[in-house]
Design a protein around this nucleic acid. Structure first.
Lengths: 153, 153
DNA sequence: CTGTCTGCAAAGACTTTGCACCACG
DNA sequence: CGTGGTGCAAAGTCTTTGCAGACAG
């Protein structure tokens, strides 16, 4: 964890930015909640525990900055809030999301299933793929286990 | 086209809603721009040509309504605006997007490449897939043709 | 000092809601 | 006349920006 912070610090410094206490607290929150997809507000509330004086604007600015540095990825699941995901170490960041329409949970699958498709896209559509995103909406295993009675939407 | 409007009219009526002139104008705009992914504002401006007295709120309400009826799909490409897509006739709406990071164009591919993956998800992750979404970010063929000089981001 | 970074509050962008009025059965 | 629908304006939500002060080199 310290090593990852150190690395992020270097990313920042290489572009002339500093790892201020607020930024460090924000990064720590992201590291500690790597599995989740936190909104800015989520991050803000968690950071407040570490650095109560921080302002929401700083969190937004930090997330924006980390996003530019490709340390985090800003994403959008259609609920009207931006969510932020720490990018994995690997050069490609190909994880996919399982979004449960019942409980709202977002799980990740780390497998990369799309390489053959990307090759096909470049060949058949002349589209140079830089990144992709694959989300599935459905019912997660937890909700399936709960075996809720079927109900009309 | 008239046939599709008629169908949508029936969808509305089956739930007790009416196809008012404003709604019809909105639907027509969507039909005429099926290839694009219009934002509410886009739709509003186009509808104004047909029905100048319409209000933006009505467009939002109509799009929301059509969304509930699964006539359109509300989506989000991460630029902070909701975009609306007419759903295709087929029961599954599996199109994928090619989003150009250079010019912002969004093209569609209608092929459905994911059925095997969905089966695997259900088997291995116990996740019941209801829908999915697959977007690729990259450089579209038009921008590639322009052969812009490579530049560091 | 010089430039970056911060908190706060104000402004902004997009969307939703409240309300009085309209239209149609 | 009752229900849904509308336009307008106001309110809401999420995010960005302006600004004066803090802080580090």
């Amino acid at each position: 964890m310290e090593a990852r912070i150190e690395k992020i610090k270097q990313s920042l410094q290489s572009k002339g930015y500093k790892l201020t206490p607020q930024r460090e607290a924000t990064v720590r929150v992201l590291l500690e909640n790597e599995e989740d997809h936190l909104s800015a507000e989520d991050v803000f509330m968690l950071v407040k525990d570490k650095a109560p004086e921080i302002g929401l604007a700083t969190v937004y600015r930090t997330l924006e900055l980390l996003s530019e540095l490709h340390v985090v990825e800003k994403m959008n699941f259609g609920d009207g809030v931006a969510r932020y995901d720490l990018r994995s170490e690997s050069n490609h960041h190909h994880h996919h999301h399982l979004i449960c329409v019942q409980c709202g949970a977002v799980d990740e699958i780390m497998e990369d299933w799309l390489t053959p498709l990307e090759e096909r896209l470049e060949r058949e559509y002349q589209f140079k793929v830089l990144d992709h995103r694959l989300d599935f909406q459905g019912i997660c295993h937890r909700c399936k286990d709960k075996a809720l009675p079927p109900e009309a939407e």
